[in-house]
C-alpha cells in the first residue's frame, strides 16, 4: 500500500504541493484527476524523489521513502511511467526491456518478457528495432513494460492514454487490470475524464496542490460541483 500524508513540495519559492494526503491499497487502481498545473505530475515526482518533498511522508508498505534519492525509491518498489515516454531511443526494444529488469525488489513472482510481449505482440515483432523508431503508442507500452520488469509494488502512470490509438488503449487497459490482479497498487494521473474511469476503483481530484475530492467513481460522477469547479474548463 502506498500511503502519502501531508506531502509538501516546491520548485524554488513556488509551492506546488500543499499537503497532499491519500492512500492506494494493494490490488487497487486510483486515479488523480486535475487540470494542468493542479499538482498531479508534481505529486508523482515528489513520490519518486525527483522533486524532493519539503514536508510529509511517503510510505510504501510502512517503509518511509520521502527524502531518499530516486534510484533507491525505484529499488524500494515504485515504478514510474512519466508522461513524456521515457524510452532510450538508441537502444533496441529488447535492450530497453533488459535495462528494466531488477532482481530482488519484490517477493511477488516477476513479470516475464514473453508474457508482456504476448499482451502487445507488435513489440515482439519489433524487438530488435531501435526504440526511437517506434510509434507513440508502442513507446508508451514499452515504457510501461520496462517498468513492470523491475517488478514494482506500486506503479505510477502519468497520462497513460494521451494520444494513443484505441487498439493500444485496449492493450494498456488489459495490462493495468492484470497488474491489479497481481496485487499492485496503481496510481493513474489524468487530465481528462477518459477511459481510465472504467478501470479505476477510486478517484481523487487535485486543485492548487491539494486533494480536493476523494471518493468512488459513482460518488465522483454524482458530484457536479467538483467537476465544474476543478475539472471542466469554464
Amino acid at each position: 500500500m502506498l500511503d502519502i500524508a501531508n506531502l509538501h513540495a516546491a520548485y524554488g519559492h513556488i509551492k506546488v504541493l500543499n499537503g497532499v494526503t491519500f492512500q492506494v491499497p494493494n490490488g487497487s487502481i486510483a486515479t488523480i484527476l486535475g487540470r494542468n498545473g493542479s499538482g498531479r505530475s508534481s505529486t508523482c515526482k515528489a513520490v519518486m524523489g525527483l522533486l524532493p518533498p519539503s514536508r510529509g511522508t511517503v510510505k510504501l508498505g510502512g517503509r518511509e521513502l520521502a527524502g531518499m534519492p530516486a534510484h533507491e525509491i525505484a529499488h524500494a518498489g515504485i515504478g514510474y511511467v512519466p508522461e513524456d515516454r521515457q524510452i532510450f531511443r538508441n537502444l533496441t526494444v529488447d535492450e530497453n526491456m533488459t535495462i528494466g529488469v531488477k532482481a530482488g525488489v519484490s517477493p511477488r513472482p516477476a513479470w516475464t518478457r514473453d508474457e508482456l510481449y504476448d499482451v502487445f505482440p507488435r513489440l515482439r515483432e519489433r524487438r530488435n528495432i531501435k526504440a526511437g523508431f517506434l510509434s507513440g503508442g508502442e513507446q508508451q507500452m514499452l515504457t510501461l513494460f520496462r517498468s513492470l520488469l523491475g517488478n514494482p509494488d506500486v506503479m505510477l502512470i502519468d497520462e497513460p492514454t494521451e494520444g494513443l490509438a484505441p487498439k493500444v488503449i485496449d492493450a494498456l487497459a488489459e495490462t493495468i487490470l492484470e497488474m491489479k490482479r497481481r496485487g499492485l497498487a496503481i496510481l493513474l494521473l489524468e487530465q481528462k475524464l477518459s477511459m481510465v474511469m472504467r478501470l479505476t476503483d477510486k478517484v481523487f481530484v487535485m486543485g492548487r496542490g491539494e486533494i480536493v475530492f476523494s471518493g468512488s467513481v459513482a460518488e465522483f460522477q454524482a458530484n457536479d460541483v467538483v467537476r465544474s469547479t476543478w475539472l471542466e474548463v469554464s
Binding site: 534510484h71 514510474y80 512519466p82 521515457q86 531511443r89 538508441n90 520496462r146 523491475g150
Partner: peptide, 10 residues
C-alpha cells in the same frame, strides 16, 4: 541518453 530515466529505473 537521459540520466534521470536510469535513476528512476533504480
Amino acid at each position: 541518453e537521459r540520466e534521470l530515466r536510469v535513476k528512476f529505473l533504480g
